[in-house]
Design a protein around this nucleic acid. Sequence first.
DNA 1: GTCTATAATTAGATAGAC
DNA 2: GTCTATCTAATTATAGAC
Lengths: 203, 203
Amino acid sequence: MGVIMGGRRGDTREQIRRVALELFAEQGYEKTSLREIAERLGVTKAALYYHFKTKEDIIASLFDEFGEKVDELVAWARTEPMTREHRVEVLERYAELLRGPAGDLMRFMSQNQQEIRDLKPGEDARARFRTLARVLADDRDTVIDQLRARVSIMALHTSVFLAHDMDISDDERHEAALEIAMELIGGADRGRRAAEREERPAS
Amino acid sequence: MGVIMGGRRGDTREQIRRVALELFAEQGYEKTSLREIAERLGVTKAALYYHFKTKEDIIASLFDEFGEKVDELVAWARTEPMTREHRVEVLERYAELLRGPAGDLMRFMSQNQQEIRDLKPGEDARARFRTLARVLADDRDTVIDQLRARVSIMALHTSVFLAHDMDISDDERHEAALEIAMELIGGADRGRRAAEREERPAS
DNA sequence: GTCTATAATTAGATAGAC
DNA sequence: GTCTATCTAATTATAGAC
């Protein structure tokens, strides 16, 4: 939208976010120091503190952007009844969301769950992850179907490093992970969910 | 084999290992300080350094014990041709191995992959993980079957925290994770592997 | 908006007494 | 085998000049 910031180049904040995500994804949150982020950007630590109050604020800013998109996806998902076809559509959209920076962020989150567990942005992200899983399989589904939904999402998050030594392109890997995720949530001869629904009176 | 240690109580080293695993699994490797381990045990940091040369040596000791068991499992797995039934058996044995301390260790590893990536014991563990996955699906299988094998192992490693807010017992969760893992590696109407083998001359 | 300088804290690790 | 005391290095964060 062509927003013009006060200073000469208003993109410093954005560059901090970009470099921080790079380094967090590369080596983890704790291991990445503010000094390192500043050095790679050619500025000093104090400059970082002008744009972000704390180190945690940097990562919070990254998670917030992703969180909004997930919230939108969940809201959209709930506009239609959860048929198997719709579940597949939701998963496809989520997989699409994971191409680009969001994928790096979720890969980072998967590989550093413990580190970000105590951080507010980490808690929020986990809550969103649960919400998305519950869209795919809720309390009316069997516990195993609920677990299948979670494993399928995790498969999408982790495919990059699960397949990192396999000789395939990014697109092939993306396709393979999506297929596995779909098998898990929309399984072939699995009709428990539909069967249960039939037995229940429309409330 | 009933080894008798030199000192009066040879269990200090073992207690350090136990407490360390507890804390590592609770809060991660980096976040757990040697001071914390020592305090929970009622000793001092210097006492730890008598039993282990470095902090890394403590975690290496934990991974080594687990690694031996995985090596044994892999060796056993290779004594028979890899039929679908045998794959299921291998996975069952691995799941059984994950009950007890090994499960805590693998859960810790899953949640802290980035942290232990640069550590020697972490590299070794990852190599063993790949080896086990290749026992279940090797180069002659499709890439998607290879990825399925890895997802299935990860599902076993992570079921504890994937299902931590679900209202099920440990045994139910264990069963559910194992079922999902088996679906992934021994899938219903999936015959690619067998078909490929038929086309190949017995070398 | 970016800098220098520094405070305050904590970590892993070692030396040497007992 | 365990202790006290200490070293070195790195971290997050702040104060104040320009």
